[in-house]
Every structure is written in structure tokens, then in C-alpha cells.
Design a protein around this nucleic acid. Structure first.
Lengths: 368, 368
DNA sequence: ATGGTCAACTTATCCGTACAAAAAATACGA
DNA sequence: TCGTATTTTTTGTACGGATAAGTTGACCAT
């Protein structure tokens, strides 16, 4: 329902929830809002009136309209209601996320917490929507898997407001650089390094790398890929770095690989470093379709050690990802943060998981 | 304060309080009130709007304004508090469940509901624990994927209690026979029939069936498998029905298949009907390991049309499962149930999805 | 009977205007 | 500098008009 008064209402709500308007601070006058949103005063009053009855604002004739202070006093002491943790993730159903969620759910459930799920579909607007819910519904803690972490995040204010309101949160898989939050991540750069190093040590010199670059993981893995080339003094062909984003992930990498394998010149790669197993499986299909064999004609390395790595006739060489252990750890850390909320904060620190290469049979020594 | 809208408000309140207007009875329309009190429509709406937010009246566009039934509803006045749906599932992370959850989460989220997840790990004790939480925490609705649905359920009482407390619930994928709840399921018997029929029509006569029999789906699919044999008058080898339960799923089916393929007598099957794609992929590995080819040496049919069916070099012939559409439908039905809670229950009925065979290249005409 | 169409009615949203009442900001005089 | 009066700003009440959108029931054709 995109009614005008709803737009105004949402805009005001956002400012309350992201902390732009603090409790007891005056909001814009009705006239100012009229001009700002180009609506009539009646519409502004509808919006404000609704927020007043819901308890977000209060009005004083002659003085103005003010932000209510519902976050501090009120009924926060409902010790009866279960503690609830929000998990905000990009894609609930995709790939390794279910495993991470499972690990977190299992641990939190055992410890008397509930888990409420939100899926952003890699969309900053949805992320904002959910952060607003988390703040206004008083969740006890939030586990966030960042949305498009390689880009600057328009919702930073909301995270800062979480801190102001002492709602603990942590990030998994990646984190927004501006925030330096408590986070559970892999050393993705080293992961990318291990993938590439393995191939170099097997004699490969033409290694194409595919990286999804709208999240931090992809850019770090790419960094590791570059570093491996430098370390072993393997010259790098600029055409052998393929980057793509989430929207392109279905078609671009497969098309690019088709081109690379088709042109059949010196550039033709003998090995592929993949952003993750999912991509590796997709590329595997392309390779099959062109009548080539893995690992005989070409080697391929995945990432994450997901179920996908064992599912095909070719068992993928890949990099281990903690998955459900990471979920479990996230549950543990968030509970620690909640318990320590009022006490001395300290000790609780980010965890960086060391990547480990798992060698299977999608890679093979290159014979001249 | 003798403002005009206050006069109108008081007049309406009086009628409510002295019983002139009974619950759910329509009050005068805005136009009538305008004339009656000689005020503008705006003033009438102010008065009514106030009474609506206080919970004395409710409005329905097109129909009119009605007296609320405060005695029955009560706590519902808290319009700001989030509605929350609990999803109780066996395994959050496994296989097609993430897709179902995703569909439900997306729909419910769009409609302003939260989704809280519980995973029973196919354990009745955990199911009970979560049902207790759901009842005591006053969730607004529950979506249940039954745990060990083929067996009698020790938690029936809890479900009956849900009904008594008017907490809507529905079941997906399967249901406990004793309850006859609203449910969203596939016609699994027909699904099993389609799998088997397809192979029979391709000339196969030695078809081994693998069925997980601790849930209803497995037993129904097996029923369909048997029915297909009877319908097409194909004699059935009793050794060609392999049943297993969740605990055995890792090892028993693969071992049994190894035995069947090893003994190399007349019994050797030429085709396999699988409980689901996950099993099919596991069996595929066994077949590969024994140096056989799919579909040249042996045909195999999966079930669910999951991502697994497209992931290997052999693209599985399988049976379509609605997955995320089922999740979405579950969200829709549970919301309908919540909204209809106080009104006339009817209309809302279980959905049975028709299975459809998807033919890929894991099955092949049998040549003599 | 059954189902579909349409008109009448009702609430929902939105605009404009005007004046009243309260508070805050400013001007002014002692 | 301080207290008071005045002006300005801001919310509160109230009127008018217009179009949109949902509900209902009567009517009509099948």
C-alpha cells in the first residue's frame, strides 16, 4: 500500500529507528513535512496521528511533535517471554546458508532461545526493513550475514543505532568495513591463496579465476589468487580474471568460460579457481558440454566443501568452510554478548577461521 | 472540551455502552452521522477514527463501520506487536526444506509476519518441547512438517490443545492420520506410481524400489510403486523392495544396492525407483563405483526435482515437488486461518498437489 | 436455481481552506 | 538586565470538495 501518508509515516519511522531522531527530540513541523513530501497538511497529520496512537510520537500544541521514548522505560522486563535472536541472511535457502542457520538454531534452541529468520535476497531495502523490525520489536540479539558486503552500506545508521540501544549483534561470513563489528569469518584471502597455490604447485600456469565481487569474500579470494601468482612468480594474464555479481551469476561465468575454452590459443587455461562450489558445478557442466574431461583436460578448484563437492562424478578439490560450526559459534557468541551486555565488555572477540584445502579428484598434475 | 467530534464520539459511545449497538452491529454511515449531528464528514471521521484506534469500533471499506467485540478479542489491541508464525520442521538445512521455508518466509514477511524456526531433527521429544513453547508463547500460527509421520504420534494431545486454544496450524508434506488437520501435501502415491509407470513403459521389468518408511511420504510412494506393478501386471520380486529409516539412510540403501548389483543373476534390476533425489544421487555414486553407466546399464528415477537432479553429469528423471510454492501457499493458508479465527470457518481446505514426471536422461528405453 | 453484471452505497485517500489555541521567539520598555 | 507585550510558529478543530476502491444486493440471462 503505497499511500502518501504511508510514505510519510515510513520516512518518519525510519528516522526514529535509525537513530536520526532521538527520544524527546522534535521532528519537522507539519508545514515542513508538507513541503518536504509535497503533500497536504491533512496527509501529514494522518501519518503523524497514526504514529502518535501507536506510541512512537507525541504532540504538544504550539510546541511541536516529538519522538517518544519507548525504548528505555516500558515493558522491557518481560522476563517471561522467550529470548529471541534474529538471523538476517541474504538467501535462506541457498547453498551453505541452511547449514549455518541449522548450526545456530540447534545451539540457540538448546539454550532456550528462539530463532527468527529474515531473508534479504541481497537487497539493501529489505535489510533496512528487517533492521527496523529488529529494533522496534526488541529482539535480544541479531546475527547478520551482510548484504552486498563489498559495497558501502546505506544502513550503517541502523547498526549504529543497535549499538546505542545495546542490542548485541555480530556478523558472519563478512562484515561492513565501516563498522568493525564482532564477526565470524574465514580468512578468505588465504583461502584464495590456497586454491591457487595448489594449482601452481601442480604445474599449472594458465589459471583462470572466477570471483563474485559484490561481497567481501569474493574480493578477498581474488586477492589471494593474485598473491599466489606473485608469490610463485607466475605471470598473470589479465584476461584470466573474471568477475561477476549476483545478478550475473547465472549466465556470465558460463559464457565467459565457453569463450575461453573455445578460442583455443595459448591463452586457453589449464585450470580454474572458482569463487565457490556452486559455480564450480555450473562450470563443470560447461566443460562437459564441450567434450572436455576434469581433471584430465582441465583442473578445477571449488570453495566451501559443500554437499555439491561430493555430488557429481567428479569430486571437487575445495576449501573447507566451517558452516554449521560457524552457526553454532555465532549462537554462542551472541549469547555471551547478551549476558555481558551490562557487565564489563571485553574478552569477546571476532573469530577468523583458517581455511584448509581438501584435495579430491578435480585437480591433477599438469604434464607437459 | 466540547468539541464537535467529541460530541459525536460521546453519542456513539453511549449507544455502545447502553447496548443500543451490539457487537458486530453496523452503526450509521458517515453520511448519516453528518446529517444527524450537522457536522462535516471530516469531523465524523475524526470521532470514529478515535474510537477505532481505541478498539471500540472497526471499519470495513465498502461495508460500513461496526461495533467491536471487545469481550472476546482483548489482547488484539496491540496492533503494533508483530505477528509471529512458528515453523516446526524436521531438518532445517536438508535438501528441499530450505526452499519450502524460503517460500513461506518470503510470503509471510511481505505480509508483516515474522517467522520463527524450530528443527526437531526428526525427534518426537524435540517436537513436544517446541509445541510447548508455541503454546506458552502465544504464537499466532504454526506450520508443521510432521516428525516421523508414519508412526503414531505421542504429541497428539498438544495438537488438540492448539485447536482448543484456537491457535491455527497446518501441516505440510505429510500429516498425522489421527488429526486430519488442514494440510498441504503431494499425492505421493500417484508420484510413486508415475515413477514406476515410466520405467515399466520403457520396458523395464526388474525395478528395485528404495523407500524411507518412517514418514508417510515414503510409504505412500511405495504404495504407488506397488500399484503400478499391479496395474501393468508386472510380477514383483519381493527382494526388490528396500525400505529404510532415517537413521539407516546413510548406509543401508547403498549397501543393499551393492548387493543387488553384485550378485549378477536374473534378479539384477535394470531400473531403480528412489524415494528422493538425494538417495538417487547417493545410489548414482554406487553405480559409478561398480563401473556401470546410467542410463545405459541401469535407469534411475528420483523424486522432488531438487537442485540435485541437475548437478551431476546425469540429469535425473524425477517427480516435480512444489517446494517454495508450497511454502508460499502454507504462508497464505495460515494467514487466512488467523484472519478467519473468529469468523465463520469454512472454505479453507487442504491442498493436494498433483505430481508430474520430469523426464531427463537418467532413464532409457530397455533394449532386449 | 445459477452465475455474472452493474449500480448504489460505504469507507479510504487526498486536496484545499480557514480560524482557534497554545507555545515559543522576538521586540520593547522600565 | 529583566519582565512584559507582541509576533510568529505550531498544533488543534472544522469545513468544503474530489476520486478511488471495496461491499452489497438487485437484476438479468442462462
Amino acid at each position: 500500500m503505497e499511500t502518501k501518508y504511508n510514505i510519510v509515516k515510513q520516512a518518519i519511522m525510519s528516522k526514529i529507528l535509525d537513530g536520526t531522531i532521538r527520544p524527546n527530540q522534535k521532528i519537522s513541523s507539519e508545514t515542513e513535512l508538507m513541503n518536504e513530501f509535497n503533500v497536504s497538511r491533512h496527509t501529514v497529520r494522518l501519518a503523524i496521528g497514526d504514529l502518535v496512537t501507536r506510541g512512537w510520537l507525541y504532540r504538544t500544541q504550539g510546541a511541536g511533535t516529538f519522538c517518544a521514548d519507548r525504548l528505555h522505560n516500558e515493558s522491557n522486563t518481560n522476563s517471561d517471554s522467550a529470548k529471541t535472536i534474529a538471523i538476517i541472511t541474504t538467501y535462506i535457502s541457498d547453498y551453505i546458508f541452511p547449514s549455518i542457520i541449522r548450526g545456530a538454531e540447534a545451539y540457540l534452541s538448546e539454550n532456550g532461545y528462539h530463532v527468527t529468520l529474515f531473508s534479504t535476497n541481497n537487497n539493501h531495502d529489505d535489510e533496512r526493513k528487517f533492521l527496523e523490525k529488529v529494533i522496534s520489536r526488541q529482539f535480544d540479539g541479531v546475527i547478520v550475514e551482510p548484504t552486498r558486503s563489498a559495497f558501502s552500506n546505506p544502513n550503517i545508521k541502523y547498526y549504529l543505532n543497535l549499538e546505542r540501544l545495546k542490542i548485541p549483534y555480530l556478523m558472519i561470513n563478512a562484515y561492513y568495513d565501516e563498522l568493525e563489528p564482532i564477526s565470524l569469518t574465514m580468512d578468505d584471502e588465504k583461502g584464495g591463496f590456497l586454491q591457487t597455490e595448489h594449482l601452481i604447485k601442480q604445474g599449472h600456469r594458465n589459471i583462470v579465476g572466477f570471483f563474485k565481487t559484490d561481497d567481501i569474500q569474493g574480493t578477498k579470494r581474488m586477492k589471494g589468487y593474485l598473491k599466489a601468482h606473485r608469490t610463485y612468480e607466475v605471470p598473470l594474464n589479465p584476461n584470466h580474471i573474471i568477475t561477476y555479481n549476483t545478478a550475473e551469476k547465472k549466465d556470465k561465468p558460463t559464457e565467459e568460460l565457453r569463450k575461453l575454452l573455445a578460442k583455443n590459443n595459448q591463452d586457453t587455461p589449464t585450470a580454474i579457481v572458482c569463487y565457490n562450489d556452486e559455480l564450480a558445478i555450473n562450470l563443470l557442466d560447461v566443460i562437459r558440454g564441450m567434450g572436455l574431461k576434469v581433471p584430465d583436460n582441465i583442473s578445477i578448484v571449488g570453495y566451501d566443501d559443500s554437499f555439491l563437492s561430493n555430488v557429481s562424478e567428479v569430486k571437487l578439490t575445495t576449501v573447507e568452510h566451517p558452516k554449521s560450526e560457524m552457526g553454532k559459534a555465532a549462537g554462542k557468541v551472541i549469547i555471551d554478548l547478551i549476558k555481558d551486555k551490562n557487565k564489563a565488555e571485553g574478552k569477546i572477540e571476532s573469530i577468523v577461521y583458517e581455511p584448509k584445502l581438501i584435495v579430491r579428484n578435480s585437480t591433477k598434475e599438469l604434464k607437459e
